[in-house]
Design a protein around this nucleic acid. Sequence first.
RNA 1: AGAGGAGUGGCAGAGUGGUCGAAUGCGGUGGUCUUGAAAACCAUUGAUCUUCACGGAUCCGGGGGUUCGAAUCCCUCCUCCUCUGCCA
Length: 423
Amino acid sequence: MLQVGNIIANKEKYVEGLKKRNLNNAAELLEEVIALDDERKQNQHTLDSNLAEANSLAKQIGGLMKEGKRAEAEEVKAKTAELKSLNKSLSDKQNEIEAKLQQALYNIPNIPNETVPTGNSDEDNVEIERHGEFPTLHEGAKAHWDLIKDHDIIDFDLGIKITGAGFPVYKGKGARLQRALVNFFLDEATKAGYGEVQPPIVVNEASGYATGQLPDKEGQMYHITNDDLYLIPTAEVPITNLYRNVIVDEKELPVKHVGFTPCFRREAGSWGAHVRGLNRLHQFDKVEIVQIQKPENSYEALKEMCNHVASLLEKLELPYRVLRLCGGDLGFTSALTFDFEVYSAAQEKWLEVSSVSNFETYQANRLKLRYKNDQKKSVLLHTLNGSAMALPRIIAAILENNQDEHGINIPQVLHSYTGFDRI
RNA sequence: AGAGGAGUGGCAGAGUGGUCGAAUGCGGUGGUCUUGAAAACCAUUGAUCUUCACGGAUCCGGGGGUUCGAAUCCCUCCUCCUCUGCCA
């Protein structure tokens, strides 16, 4: 979440920034935070001086008791009763104010970077790069949802039987292709200096709040109510939360991690004809890269992460484009996001396969993730993450783009991982 | 899952109602000495809020309570260890 001090110092700028998200009551939201913070300080000040007085009286009593002056001690004690009840109500009030302030801050999204264009939806995202040639498909080329049936490599009906819609079963070469991609992505990230981690795929509420999925995307996650745990929508949540409440040693910066996990998304209300086959699932596999950076280096790191994602797509020989997300499509916690889309030739559609974001200090503030600078002051770090990559749509594009009359060619770079070059 | 024990600063570990944000040791940092290093010695070494500053407040697993006063007593939750049970 945003830092109150920064809100006060940059109010006008922030209002402008939030307008890009089409948040028209931004000024009021920020005013509310400032007012609550003011109230918090004033109340805290009163409470503190009362507590100081109570503390000193308590010490007096202690001293008198030691000297055996019981009567005098009782006299002082009498004075404390009123103070005590006053302090109780002041501290109740303080808790109330702080809860309200917290709530107000939770409801304000991150300030978009100045390069974020205005816009209302994904239609207003700006294409900034395009690479690769669209393949020429043979007569009668099929979309991946037909190809997977023809070759019996991914089975949606079986998934429906054992779980439900959106939980496909990968079989034979389909399963092997998926595993090959996971290993390829992990190896590439490792070569690029990311340390591999394998985190839990359920997280507690505190983790959900720290990276911003809660309260913003409550309905998007599967919630295990018996134990109050959430299935992760992305490895970003557990991996970034490894650093919750941590003061990182400056020598360890930047922190770079890669992790492979399944991801779970309820996708409530987002189904329709345009999300057939592998285009949208409730469970899918993803390799995620995460960086923790000093503020001054974070945009350089964002570029580096984008280059990494681009290199994966180059190696897989998939045509892709890069989009700069507009304010209306930008995630709640992100300051700047680049989406990568591959072209899936049979359905003639661009499919989002990666989203690379800089959250600046927005997550770090909730995480309490800091390092000590030269002056030994605690400084919030910047967090970044990106998919590298999400599997199903990559598979969709590979199947569709590389098909011919008799089968499907596997990209060269995967052969050593799959053990076969054709499906 | 049941019974018992325990959670204190970066780590180890003392502290069982009063001046304890907390002894001591290790580690870290700075210095003296040294050509340099080691050793030794000296000093320093948690976080957050607030204040221009002095200072003040809060934090001993989390939350609540008793008390003039809580690391210390009570309740509750969490976590870890030991034994028993169960199980990849």
